[in-house]
Design a protein around this nucleic acid. Sequence first.
DNA 1: TTAGTTGCAGAATAATATTCTGTAACGGAA
DNA 2: TTCCGTTACAGAATATTATTCTGCAACTAA
Lengths: 205, 205
Amino acid sequence: MHSIDLIERTFPGRRSDLKRIILREALACFNEVGIEATSIETIRARCDTSVGAIYHHFGNKEGLVAALFFAALEDQASLRDHYLQAADTAHAGVVGLVYSYVEWVTEQPDWARFVFQSRFAVSSGPFKEELLARNKQRNQQLKEWMSGEGRKEHFSHLPAELIPSLIIGAAESYSRAWLSAKVKKSPFDYRELLAEAAWKSISLG
Amino acid sequence: MHSIDLIERTFPGRRSDLKRIILREALACFNEVGIEATSIETIRARCDTSVGAIYHHFGNKEGLVAALFFAALEDQASLRDHYLQAADTAHAGVVGLVYSYVEWVTEQPDWARFVFQSRFAVSSGPFKEELLARNKQRNQQLKEWMSGEGRKEHFSHLPAELIPSLIIGAAESYSRAWLSAKVKKSPFDYRELLAEAAWKSISLG
DNA sequence: TTAGTTGCAGAATAATATTCTGTAACGGAA
DNA sequence: TTCCGTTACAGAATATTATTCTGCAACTAA
């Protein structure tokens, strides 16, 4: 789909050459042995660089994690926007949300795994404000979409704060299971079932 | 409901006195600032004990995390068993699964928060085998329950590996949101809606 | 009693994160 | 082009943290 990968999109330019290498190797390490278990020295060695360079670009380990985390969130959001933009009916919107989610997870499994792994740390570290702001904006965006003409009557019988979980809860849960190899088929393979289940779960009756 | 708390249930006896104190304080620290950000020294100070004692009881930091994690899982499982045992129809079982889940999360928010935070670390650390075994057993148990007479026809139209996510996905997602204060009402308050949404999501049509 | 096992303390050590200082490349202004 | 401020990087020095180790005291079964 995209010819260049997530990192190139987020950190373009020749000046960010080493920066991209560090991000790539760090992501690999984090997924292989976990964030806590990968030391700066390990990353340094895999990039054949110095600790100074790493700290220059990211401040500290937490900053490196946050850079990866927000890059992933942004990429995920852009795919979601792409899907939502094409959806006018309530049903199409719900399907789009589920589809965009499972497609992103299936296409970027390493990034998805990392997002699951790092969310808590980011949300309680020095970048929590930034994450909070992004979540708020996304919720606002969804809320506006749901209150559009011809759509709102499909959601108004449910508490607003519950709706997002009803829509992507199952897809997220299955994605986690797939990323940790507990199930075989990818969430993308089950996208129709997941989307229809989401739709039924918010339907009346 | 229970007169003694989760820790007393899991680590009884006067010999485990300090052990329980350490577990309690460690859980508090982990939830307040995160696992990575809490040092052994911090825990030691809060328990007014020595690092030797901590390492004697738990081996290392990872062992301490694992002890908390498995204690929580066990407690959660016992409540689930309690609910499932009373359910004979498919509908009652699905409702029971959702109810037991949200009830546990709402009653033990600190433990639930910690489980979400630590699952990845445990699943990729030296205790992954143990976790895998427990998951396997739980899945087997669920599978057997679902294949019982008068129930299996309600599940057989869906892939087995997808069903657990359809049932608890939304409840889990909403629980996470509640535990990080992104929503106001507790999952327990929405238990009927969550249970009915789960049931609809696996229903035919 | 007594030998062995378990519970705990705290100093010593090891592993790791972070800071700091210096040097070279770069990019625009004169 | 030269000059100057800024950015990119290296690596030694330092600080922080996890873990080990040795010793002692309490308990326990014989």
